[in-house]
Amino acid sequence: MQLRNIVIGVTAMGLVGVASSAFAETWRFGLEETEGSVQYGYAEEFKKLIEEKSDGDVTVQLLPYGTWGSNYSALYDAIQNGAIQIGFGSGFLGGTVPESQLMSLNFVMPNDQLETAKILNSDAFLKSDPWQQSFRKRGLVPLGALPEGYQVWTANKEIRTPEDMKGLQIRVMDNSLLRATYEAYGAAPITIAYGELYSALQQGQAEGNIQPVFAHENMGFYEVQDYMIFADQSQFVANLIGNQDWYEGLSDEQHKMLDSVLGEMVQKGHDIQTQFNSERLDTIKEKSDIKIIHLNEQERDAFRKLAKPVRQTYIDMVGERGKESLNILLDQIDKADSKKSQ
Rank of each mutant, 00 (worst) to 15 (best):
P189R: 01
I190C: 03
I190Y: 00
T191G: 03
I192T: 08
I192M: 03
A193E: 12
A193H: 03
Y194P: 00
Y194G: 12
E196W: 04
E196I: 00
E196N: 12
E196C: 00
L197D: 06
L197T: 13
L197Q: 13
Y198V: 04
Y198P: 01
Y198E: 01
Y198S: 03
Y198A: 06
S199T: 11
A200D: 06
Q202P: 01
Q202R: 13
Q203M: 12
G204S: 05
G204D: 07
Q205Y: 06
Q205G: 06
A206R: 03
A206E: 03
E207P: 02
E207G: 02
E207I: 00
E207Q: 15
G208D: 02
G208N: 03
N209V: 05
N209I: 00
N209M: 02
Q211W: 00
Q211S: 08
P212F: 04
P212V: 06
P212K: 06
V213H: 05
F214Y: 15
A215M: 04
A215K: 05
A215C: 00
A215Y: 00
H216E: 09
H216P: 08
H216S: 08
E217P: 01
E217M: 08
E217F: 13
E217S: 10
N218A: 14
N218Q: 14
N218V: 02
M219V: 04
M219A: 11
M219G: 00
G220L: 10
G220F: 11
G220W: 12
F221L: 14
Y222R: 04
Y222E: 06
Y222S: 06
E223D: 13
E223C: 02
E223M: 09
E223N: 14
E223L: 13
V224P: 08
V224A: 07
V224H: 07
V224I: 09
Q225K: 09
Q225C: 08
Q225N: 15
Q225V: 09
Y227S: 08
Y227N: 08
Y227F: 15
Y227T: 04
Y227V: 02
M228Q: 14
M228D: 04
M228Y: 07
M228V: 06
I229F: 07
A231D: 14
A231I: 07
A231K: 10
D232H: 15
D232V: 02
D232Y: 15
Q233T: 08
Q233E: 13
Q233P: 00
S234R: 13
S234V: 15
Q235K: 09
Q235V: 11
F236N: 13
F236R: 03
F236H: 13
V237H: 10
V237I: 15
A238T: 05
N239R: 12
N239H: 14
L240V: 14
L240H: 06
L240F: 07
L240T: 07
I241C: 04
I241R: 03
I241Q: 01
I241L: 03
I241Y: 02
I241H: 05
G242P: 07
G242D: 08
N243D: 13
N243V: 10
N243W: 12
Q244K: 15
Q244D: 14
Q244R: 14
D245E: 14
D245T: 14
D245M: 10
D245K: 15
W246Q: 11
W246G: 05
W246L: 12
Y247T: 09
Y247E: 10
Y247F: 15
Y247D: 10
E248N: 15
E248Y: 11
E248M: 12
L250S: 10
S251H: 10
S251I: 11
S251E: 11
S251A: 13
S251Y: 09
